[in-house]
Design a binder for these strands. Sequence first.
DNA 1: CGGTATCCCTGCAGATACTG
DNA 2: CAGTATCTGCAGGGATACCG
Lengths: 138, 138
Amino acid sequence: MSPRDIEVTDQVIDTCPIRDLLDQVGGKWSVQVIEELAEGPRRFSELERSIEGVSRRMLTRTLRSLERDGLVSRTVYATVPPSVEYAVTPLATDLVVPLTALADWARAHRADVAAARHAYDSTYGGNEQLAVPAGRPF
Amino acid sequence: MSPRDIEVTDQVIDTCPIRDLLDQVGGKWSVQVIEELAEGPRRFSELERSIEGVSRRMLTRTLRSLERDGLVSRTVYATVPPSVEYAVTPLATDLVVPLTALADWARAHRADVAAARHAYDSTYGGNEQLAVPAGRPF
DNA sequence: CGGTATCCCTGCAGATACTG
DNA sequence: CAGTATCTGCAGGGATACCG
């Protein structure tokens, strides 16, 4: 697939904008990185420490992806040892607002969702697999 | 992994609420389903037609998952032929608001993101792979 | 109509080791 | 410090076929 093909594809596929967005920030770490950077610029190792569980590799990939989408900026200071600072761009700043609203929803209804899931599981077979049981009542 | 283990895990892992949310609606079709149902109840085949590209299998899986999380309700009418109606629950209704805000952001900045991506790609090697090129300028 | 069952394949993501 | 390279696994998701 050549770069030219990419351009064409971008124009042709005119899908749900939310799907585009999820393709950008739907990764396992993207949102956490954005939220961390929203509080101020961070260095690579700072992010690595504050985002628990992320591997070097995935942090790098996530930052690259966000940088590519213009959501995060990367500034290298040619010091010894080298230091690299990441920050959110104005574009991402706008994104943080609705993202926070979503996070608020998630926090507010976390218990509801957990309860629903528990009820569902205990009603239909009780295992965590979400296959619909044969004996589902009408 | 037994159901009991699931419960324990739910309590122990106390991650970012946004990640919980993405685990629920981060799938490829979840958001589109919710948005479609937000406009009113739909039958299975209606969803299948209106959400372009979704397979029977994935639509079923998505609906099951949303139902399990209490975001979608499923009502079976024992007619011949059978008809099944899906609708968003009040819980999901609250979710639609911030979701729409996000969609608005995505729509508004779609061009910006595309431009950023294009600039990034043409600056660093020009291929769609987001590997950092060796010759990246400081 | 509204699903299941099965096969398969891609790509996200983790683990580990190495480097300018 | 801030990465890259390589291997590998596994879950998400598509295609196809069949069922009550």
